[in-house]
Computed example of a mutant assay.
Amino acid sequence: MPTYNKLVRDRIPEIITSRGLTPNSRKLDTEEYRIELRKKLQEEVQEYLSAANDKESVEELADVLEVLHGLVEIHGSSVQELEQVRAHKAAERGGFRDRCFLIDVPDA
């Protein structure tokens, strides 16, 4: 019997049940949820970093994005507000599309 002890997507217990198995799960309280979302973000980022090709990379990035959606809500915000903050920062400081790699600032 595998033991997971981790946050999973909402439909995973239903999928397990549809396979004739009986999952043991529980609903996390708010603080547990916050902690587990942070762990899940680390897990998904690691899976992205380990992806073997573009298709796997995009799949893992979708998982990262899903976790970000949960995190932004747990912090009392919304995906729309997150996008506004991202756009504001991009307008002020730019994005990463130009591939600029800063080496040093000798006169700083």
Rank of each mutant, 00 (worst) to 15 (best):
A87N: 09
R26K: 12
R93W: 00
V45K: 02
E36T: 04
P13L: 06
Q84D: 14
E56S: 06
V58S: 03
S78Y: 04
T17W: 05
I16F: 04
G95L: 04
V64N: 06
A52L: 14
A90S: 08
D107A: 12
S50R: 15
D107Y: 15
I74F: 01
S50I: 07
V105R: 06
K89Q: 10
Y4H: 07
K39P: 01
R26P: 00
R11V: 07
R26L: 03
L21D: 14
D10Y: 09
R34Q: 13
R26D: 05
K55V: 14
L37F: 13
H88C: 10
R93E: 02
V58I: 15
Y33I: 02
E47P: 02
N5F: 07
P23H: 01
K39M: 11
Y4T: 02
D10S: 05
E56A: 13
R19A: 07
L28W: 02
K27F: 01
F101P: 00
V72I: 15
R19T: 08
R93V: 05
Y4C: 00
Y48S: 06
I15C: 06
V8M: 13
F96Y: 11
V72G: 05
V85Y: 07
L7S: 06
E73I: 00
A91M: 09
G20S: 03
R93D: 04
Q80G: 13
A52N: 15
V79R: 12
E14M: 05
V105W: 05
I74Q: 07
F101W: 11
K39N: 12
R34N: 08
L21I: 04
A87L: 14
V58L: 13
